[in-house]
């Protein structure tokens, strides 16, 4: 669509050094990790994202068009300027700015996780899968901390879905929720292998693992948007490019509030859609 075309124009400006196109390392990597996890792919090492995607591709149910696209994005990411990694996510000031933007500028409530009932179902499904790990994983496979057994984990999930009369579809729109569950299950397996060398796990440990996984990978993405905004402000960035027009309107409408925050060193940030940025670049 038009926003894709506008991004091509922006990329051209970047390649000709007429625009500084930047991103932040950790926040960007976390976005990718979450996005791929939602599709079932487990990135365990952000220095080896492509290898992690290729390991996922060896499973025959994977949509190769999608993974080809991911690899392209990873390649594009490598061509961006990454803002100072050292300063990311360390200081308390960043956290107060984070809450300030979320509450005072974007006026968001405290709860941005999944709808409660869906989260509850996910937890129950993952917990039940974990209760049966010893029926599927032999000792050798359980000891292998590196390899992700996509096919085996899918079989474990499939069996639990069938128990609940949920159609175990993986592909397409219909399979979206199941792919997301597989992504979460891969994490549960990984964390369980590391924290419990011998199966079975006791139910309290399962609760602990599932809760940790849900907290890190099971929420929605709005919190990440705020992280990006914080990084932009800290690095005195002019524009944050997003296709979320609702976010753009809310932030730009109340960004003057930023001057009230003591840790806020720059208030010039404006959120723009790709086409809005192109218009500004042309007008320059």
């Amino acid at each position: 669509g038009p926003e894709q075309e506008a991004m091509q124009v922006i990329w051209g400006y970047h390649k000709k050094d007429r625009l500084r196109l930047v991103t932040s390392g950790e926040a960007m990597e976390m976005d990718m990790v979450i996005a791929f996890n939602t599709e079932g792919c487990c990135v365990t090492d952000t220095y080896m994202i492509t290898e992690n995607i290729e390991a996922f591709e060896t499973w025959d149910r994977v949509d190769r068009d999608l993974t080809a696209k991911w690899k392209q994005v990873v390649d594009l990411f490598d061509q961006l300027e990454v803002l100072d990694r050292e300063r990311e996510g360390t200081q308390g000031a960043e956290d107060t700015l984070f809450s300030f933007i979320r509450e005072e500028v974007l006026c968001e409530g405290g709860n941005d996780t999944l709808p409660q009932n869906r989260a509850k179902d996910d937890v129950e499904i993952l917990h039940n899968c974990a209760r049966h790990f010893q029926e599927w994983y032999g000792e050798d496979r359980w000891r292998d901390l590196r390899r992700i057994e996509y096919d085996l984990n899918w079989k474990i999930l499939e069996s639990e879905l069938l128990q609940r009369s949920i159609e175990p579809v993986f592909e397409g729109e219909e399979g979206a929720q199941n792919r997301c569950l597989l992504g979460l299950l891969n994490r549960v397996v990984g964390f369980s292998k590391k924290s419990c060398p011998m199966l079975p796990m006791n139910p309290r440990h399962i609760d602990f693992v599932v809760e940790a996984v849900m907290k890190k990978y099971g929420g929605d993405r709005r919190e990440h948007e705020v992280r990006h905004i914080v990084h932009c402000i800290e690095h005195d960035v002019d524009f944050l490019i997003t296709v979320d027009e609702d976010l753009t309107a809310r932030f730009n409408g109340k960004r003057h509030e930023l001057s009230k925050h003591p840790a806020c060193c720059s208030i010039k940030l404006t959120l723009v859609t790709p086409s809005q940025l192109v218009n500004r670049l042309i007008a320059q």
């Binding site: 926003e3 894709q4 991004m7 091509q8 922006i10 990329w11 050094d17 007429r18 625009l19 500084r20 196109l21 930047v22 991103t23 932040s24 926040a27 960007m28 976005d31 990718m32 996005a35 696209k69 991911w70 392209q72 994005v73 594009l76 990411f77 961006l80 803002l83 990440h224 948007e225 990006h228 990084h231 932009c232 690095h235 005195d236 960035v237 002019d238 524009f239 944050l240 490019i241 997003t242 296709v243 723009v272 790709p274 940025l277 500004r280 670049l281 320059q284």
Partner: peptide
């Protein structure tokens, strides 16, 4: 030179 920040979802419009 202006600085523009891009995140994953916007960057993926290029792929």
């Amino acid at each position: 030179r202006l600085t523009a920040y891009v995140g994953y979802h916007t960057l993926s419009l290029l792929a």
